[in-house]
Amino acid sequence: MIKDRLTELNKAGIKKGDVIIALILVLASFLALLYSPGSSDSTEKYAILYHKGEEIDRINLDSIDNPYEKPYILNGLKAIIRYEKGSAAFIYSDCRDKLCIERGQIKGQADASVCLPLNLVLIIEGGEREKDMDAVVY
């Protein structure tokens, strides 16, 4: 049966080696998934800001009741991050491409927003696994 499939695939020029390679990589991707750090359930959600790889700020997003904006000035360049309950976003940056601002709000665990020219990386850590809920009634 596999041979039949293979000949079908051959019409598209696919050879045995191709299939083997594809399978190896898919396997590798699943293995990588297993070895990647599991996301924690219900820990406090933090937004961590790294500059040139070093942590320069850590904000607890769960405890924010009133959103606020915090400016950062590094090497003469300015960026402003807006912190809200459960999320953070770049709202201003002196960089040229403004990709960080375009990225918008990040709120899930391991979500990141990066401003490369300013060497800033904003990452979300912890927090309940994004349960894909639009709102919580309480």
């Binding site: 594809a22 990589l25 590798a28 991707s29 790889g53 391991a110 990141a112 990066v114 990386v121």
Partner: peptide, 20 residues
Amino acid sequence: IVTGTNFLSAYLPFMLFASV
């Protein structure tokens, strides 16, 4: 390297799968 942070493990699986 450029950002100096380690998100390697988080993204690797998806990127490998996507490349297939």
